[in-house]
C-alpha cells in the first residue's frame, strides 16, 4: 500500500503596509482582517505555483496543496502539501506578495510531517498571539477565551 506522505507548513501572515499612526492597539487592529479565510490563501498559493513553476509545478503540487487551518485574528495558518514537493510549495508561498489587494509576506515558522506535531505548535503559537492581542486591549478576556476555544476546536479538526 503506497502511503501518501505529507508536510504541514505552519505559517504566519504579515502585512507590509504601514499601519496608521496612533496607539499600538489601533495599529494592530488595522492588521486584523476577519474577512480573509483559508480559501483566499489557498487560491493565492495555487496561482503562485502556476505563475512561478508553470504547468509542471501545477501538475505535481497544486492538487495536493490545501490550507487546513487559518485564523484571521492571529494571522496564522497550516498548509498541507505532498512531501516530495514541499519546498516548491514553500517557495511559492514565499512568492505570494499580495492578498486581496494588500501587500503581505508569508513566513513559515514550522514544518511537520505529522498532524499531531503541527497541531501542538499551532496551538502554542495561537495561545501566545491571542494573549498579546488581549494585552493590547483589542479583545476582552472573554473574547480571547472564546477565540482560543474556537482555535483549539479547529486545530483539532485538522485532518489529512
Amino acid at each position: 500500500m503506497v502511503r501518501f506522505k505529507n508536510r504541514f507548513l505552519l505559517f504566519r501572515l504579515h502585512y507590509n503596509d504601514d499601519p496608521p499612526a496612533g496607539p499600538a492597539s489601533s495599529r494592530h487592529a488595522a492588521l486584523i482582517d476577519p474577512v480573509i479565510h483559508g480559501g483566499n490563501i489557498s487560491s493565492a498559493v495555487k496561482e503562485s505555483i502556476l505563475l512561478n513553476f508553470g504547468d509542471y509545478g501545477a501538475g505535481i503540487a497544486a492538487t495536493s496543496t490545501a490550507v487546513k487551518y487559518f485564523s484571521p485574528w492571529t494571522n496564522t495558518g497550516v498548509l498541507r502539501c505532498a512531501r516530495d514537493h514541499f519546498e516548491l510549495v514553500w517557495a511559492a508561498l514565499t512568492f505570494v506578495t499580495q492578498l486581496k489587494g494588500k501587500s503581505c509576506t508569508f513566513r513559515v515558522v514550522h514544518v511537520g510531517g505529522t498532524i499531531k506535531s503541527v497541531q501542538q505548535e499551532t496551538l502554542d503559537l495561537d495561545r501566545r498571539l491571542l494573549g498579546d492581542i488581549q494585552k493590547l486591549g483589542l479583545v476582552t478576556a472573554h473574547q480571547s477565551a472564546d477565540l482560543l476555544a474556537k482555535a483549539r476546536e479547529e486545530i483539532a479538526a485538522i485532518d489529512v
Binding site: 502556476l50 505563475l51 512561478n52 513553476f53 508553470g54 504547468d55 509542471y56
Partner: peptide, 9 residues
C-alpha cells in the same frame, strides 16, 4: 519555458 516551467523555468 514559461508555459511549462513558469518564471523559474
Amino acid at each position: 519555458l514559461r508555459e511549462t516551467f513558469g518564471l523559474i523555468g
